[in-house]
């Protein structure tokens, strides 16, 4: 057999994908650069949600709030306090991570639908606060955010922001990949599969949950900051239920507890949304139909299908 091993194919595909993304800004129109940039940011978001929902098996949906907190903190520090983006951005992400640890506390007691609704309530309250803290956020009208200062980097701002997103994505993937394969990853696995037995196996449920929510919050916060400088605009509309549903769809469509799944799910969702623009009112029907067919035929997402075809690609983790 001369057939290449699937792992190697996957690795080549990943390298090729990154290479394509790296040269894309110079090959396509600014519109497509924008779409690709949003796509990259959404992969980070899907990864962040997948960490909590897929790997740790916690049905929590607070991601959109973390993203919003990251975006608003960064945006307000830059426009109101004249902070540099390079300090404001991580500050926003750290705040999102800190809030993430707070959200982890109810997750210690609540499960399933109850955890879902308490986190959805949290998202709605954060959205409401963005809307009503007018003295700080400008309320519903939102505000513009300048490009980060790229210190005379000889490429245009739009492309520079694109590369910043790409680098962040690669960093996030590297961290999550290593983490999942580590002892921490095995704790997560155990948490998702057998939460009640976990303590007996010497797993500290408390710290594991806190850590995974904090990391998820950090990634979503970073993505929120990137989202804001890509749109150059922040308003509360971007951090509401619809985004939550879209991110949920990304994870489910791509595949739960799978890095490959996050990448595929986010890419497909974002490209679909853009391609289906032409369908106008039927946009919703089309995206619904595609989602339904995918989930009916591949209940474990597209990554599930890939792993089914090539069992050796299965990540070392639990079955969702």
């Amino acid at each position: 057999m001369i057939m290449a091993r699937p792992e190697r194919v996957l690795r080549y595909a990943a390298v090729a994908g990154v290479a394509v993304l790296a040269v894309a800004p110079w090959m396509v129109s600014l519109y497509k650069v924008h779409v690709l940039n949003i796509l990259i940011i959404n992969i980070i978001l899907a990864t962040s949600l997948n960490l909590v929902m897929g790997y740790a098996g916690q049905f929590a949906k607070a991601n959109v709030a973390f993203m919003g907190l990251g975006a608003y903190t960064m945006g307000l520090l830059v426009t109101r306090a004249d902070w540099s983006f390079w300090i404001a951005w991580p500050a926003g992400a750290l705040l999102a991570a800190a809030v993430g640890t707070l959200v982890a506390l109810p997750a210690l007691r609540l499960r399933g639908l109850y955890l879902a609704i308490i986190t959805i309530s949290f998202v709605l309250i954060v959205h409401w606060s963005f809307l009503h803290a007018r003295f700080l956020t400008g309320g519903a009208s939102g505000f513009s955010v300048p490009h980060p200062n790229y210190f005379g980097l000889p490429i245009p701002n739009i492309q520079a922001t694109y590369y910043l997103s790409l680098l962040t994505l690669l960093g996030a993937m590297w961290i999550v990949r290593n983490l999942v394969a580590s002892g921490f990853g095995r704790s997560l696995l155990c948490l998702a599969e057998q939460e009640l037995v976990a303590p007996a196996l010497g797993i500290n449920v408390f710290t594991t949950k806190i850590a995974v929510f904090a990391l998820s919050g950090l990634l979503a916060g970073l993505a929120g900051g990137l989202h804001a400088v890509t749109l150059q605009f922040i308003d509360p509309q971007n951090f509401w239920l619809l985004q939550l549903v879209v991110q949920l769809c990304m994870v489910a469509l791509g595949g739960v507890a799978s890095l490959l799944g996050s990448v595929l799910g986010a890419s497909i969702m974002i490209l679909l949304i853009e391609v289906l623009r032409a369908f106008k009112g039927l946009w919703e029907f089309a995206i619904g139909a595609i989602l339904l067919l995918t989930i009916v035929f591949f209940p474990r997402g597209i990554a599930g299908l890939v792993e089914h075809l090539f069992p050796s690609l299965r990540e070392r983790r639990h079955r969702p």
């Binding site: 519109y31 924008h34 779409v35 949003i38 749109l231 308003d235 509309q237």
Partner: peptide
């Protein structure tokens, strides 16, 4: 009616 949809729409009109 949103930034998320509007920005790509206007970029598509102008650049594509």
């Amino acid at each position: 009616c949103t930034a998320e949809m509007g920005i790509p729409a206007v970029k598509k009109a102008i650049h594509d």
